[in-house]
């Protein structure tokens, strides 16, 4: 990646903007392919991962049921290798949904960037090393909303 593009990506500060530009053919495919938040994915604590996902953006001062972010996941997951996690957010102007497992060796599991016109809903499957909180960060209209849910894992799945 050349320095100019790195600076550009950092300054834009939002992968959703990149996705928007790319969707209109304004970025080469290669810029898109290189978009992977290395610092966030390689973080080994929840705090470090969150800081890198947020990248300086604000987290709204609302938690739990009040922010419209719902996590659909089992209370008890028998197999930590396949834990279904769904996120439904009742927020306008959705930009991205990040899913983190607090006690995993590398907590950040996935970031889904949703270009304009997308809907604030995703379902996926993640590995959980042990019982812990699943933390979700939903970015909408430039602001992050956070929610979490405790999941008990009978058999850890990070082997």
């Amino acid at each position: 990646m050349d320095p100019g593009r790195r600076t550009f990506i950092r300054d834009v500060g939002s992968s959703s903007v990149i996705a928007l530009l790319a969707s209109y053919g304004l970025l080469p495919e290669s810029a898109y392919a290189e978009l992977w938040n290395k610092a966030a994915f390689e973080a080994t604590s929840l705090e470090e991962a969150l800081v890198n996902v947020l990248d300086g953006a604000r987290v709204a001062d609302n938690r739990g049921d009040r922010n419209g972010v719902g996590i659909i996941a089992p209370e008890i997951a028998e197999n930590g290798a396949i834990v279904p996690v769904g996120v439904v957010a009742a927020v306008p102007d959705i930009e991205s949904i990040a899913i983190l497992c607090e006690d995993n060796p590398q907590p950040l599991a996935a970031i889904y960037d949703i270009p304009p016109g997308g809907l604030p809903e995703i379902r996926t499957r993640v590995k959980m090393a042990a019982s812990s909180n699943v933390v979700v960060l939903v970015k909408a209209a430039g602001v992050f909303h956070m929610a979490s849910k405790a999941i008990k894992v009978t058999r850890g799945g990070c082997g």
């Binding site: 992968s15 994915f41 290798a81 950040l108 996935a110 889904y112 270009p115 995703i122 499957r125």
Partner: peptide
């Protein structure tokens, strides 16, 4: 319509719905 960034904690044989 969707761009995903994944780490190793996404399950084997990844499945997603949107």
């Amino acid at each position: 319509v969707l761009f995903a960034q994944w780490g190793p904690a996404v399950s084997k044989n990844p499945y997603f719905v949107f």
